[in-house]
Simulated scan of single mutants.
Amino acid sequence: MFELLREDWETHERKFSRQGFWAMSVYRFGRWRYTIGPRILRASFSFLYKFLQKLVEVLAGIELPCEVTLGRRFRIDHFGGIIISGDATFGDDCVVRNGVTVGLRHTGQRGAPVIGNRVDIGAGAKILGPIHIGDDVAIGANAVVIRDVPSNSIAVGIPARILPRRDAALAQAEIAELQS
Rank of each mutant, 00 (worst) to 15 (best):
L55G: 13
V56P: 04
V56D: 06
V58C: 12
A60Y: 07
G61M: 11
I62P: 04
I62W: 05
E63C: 12
E63N: 12
E63R: 13
L64C: 05
L64I: 05
P65Q: 06
P65R: 06
P65L: 07
C66F: 10
C66K: 09
C66P: 09
E67G: 10
V68A: 06
T69C: 15
L70S: 10
L70G: 08
G71Y: 04
R72Y: 14
R73G: 01
F74V: 10
F74A: 11
F74L: 08
R75S: 11
I76D: 05
I76A: 05
I76H: 06
D77K: 13
D77I: 14
H78Q: 02
F79C: 15
F79I: 15
G80D: 03
G80E: 02
G81F: 02
G81V: 00
G81A: 00
I83L: 10
I83R: 09
I84G: 01
S85F: 09
G86C: 09
D87H: 13
A88N: 03
T89V: 12
T89E: 10
F90H: 03
F90K: 02
D92W: 07
D93H: 03
D93I: 02
C94A: 12
V95C: 12
V95K: 14
V96T: 11
N98G: 15
N98A: 14
G99K: 07
V100M: 01
V100R: 00
T101N: 08
V102P: 04
V102D: 01
V102R: 04
G103M: 02
L104H: 13
T107P: 14
G108K: 00
G108V: 00
Q109E: 10
Q109T: 09
Q109I: 12
R110N: 15
R110P: 15
G111L: 06
G111I: 06
A112R: 06
P113M: 02
P113Q: 03
P113W: 05
P113R: 05
V114F: 08
V114G: 08
R118C: 03
R118Y: 07
V119K: 00
V119G: 00
G122K: 01
G122S: 03
A123Q: 13
A123R: 13
A125F: 09
K126Q: 09
K126D: 14
I127Y: 02
I127L: 05
L128Q: 07
G129A: 09
P130I: 11
P130A: 10
P130W: 09
P130D: 11
I131V: 11
I131P: 11
H132G: 15
I133E: 05
D135V: 00
D136L: 02
D136G: 04
D136K: 02
V137D: 01
A138S: 13
G140P: 08
A141Y: 03
A141C: 05
A141F: 03
N142E: 10
A143G: 04
